[in-house]
Computed example of a mutant assay.
Amino acid sequence: LSTEFRQHSKLRHVEKDVLIPQIMRERAKELCSDKVQAFTKCCQETGFLMVVKCQQENTALKDCLVGYYSDPLFYEECKAEYLKQREEYRATGIKKKRQTLTSNV
C-alpha cells in the first residue's frame, strides 16, 4: 500500500469508537428493519405490558443487531463506507447524509 493511502486510512480514536459504530448501528437497524417493526408494533399494541408480552420480538431484534455488531466483515464494510465519506468530505467540504434502505426505520 502506498504511504498516501495508509495516511488517509489511519483512524482517530473518535472515528474507531464513535463514528464507525454509529454507521454500524444505522446499517444494522436498516438490515434488521423487519424485527424493528415487529418489536415497535408489539410495544404499541401492548403498552405497559410490553416488558412481558414483547420478549420474543425483543430477543429477535437484539439477536439480529448483535449479529451485525459482532461481525468483523460488517465492521470492515462500515469502516470502508466511513473512509469513503471522509474522503469525499475532505475533497469537497460537503458532508453527505447516508442513504437509508427504508424510510420508516
Score class of each variant (00 low, 15 high):
10 K>R: 08
54 C>S: 05
61 L>N: 00
78 C>H: 06
18 V>A: 08
31 L>G: 10
3 T>W: 02
54 C>N: 00
26 E>G: 03
29 K>N: 14
2 S>G: 10
87 E>N: 09
47 G>H: 02
41 K>C: 03
61 L>R: 00
13 H>L: 13
35 K>I: 01
49 L>N: 12
63 D>T: 03
40 T>A: 15
74 F>W: 06
14 V>K: 13
17 D>I: 10
25 R>T: 12
3 T>M: 12
51 V>F: 15
45 E>A: 14
84 K>S: 13
87 E>K: 10
65 L>V: 06
59 T>H: 07
29 K>C: 10
49 L>G: 09
25 R>A: 09
19 L>T: 06
94 I>L: 04
91 A>S: 14
12 R>P: 01
90 R>C: 07
41 K>Y: 11
31 L>H: 09
64 C>P: 06
71 D>Q: 05
55 Q>A: 11
76 E>S: 12
15 E>P: 00
88 E>A: 06
20 I>S: 07
80 A>Q: 09
70 S>H: 13
66 V>F: 08
39 F>P: 04
57 E>N: 03
76 E>N: 12
34 D>T: 12
58 N>C: 13
60 A>S: 07
34 D>H: 13
43 C>Q: 15
16 K>S: 14
21 P>V: 06
15 E>F: 00
81 E>N: 07
59 T>Y: 01
27 R>N: 04
33 S>C: 13
35 K>P: 12
10 K>M: 09
79 K>M: 10
71 D>L: 03
82 Y>V: 02
40 T>E: 13
16 K>N: 14
49 L>T: 12
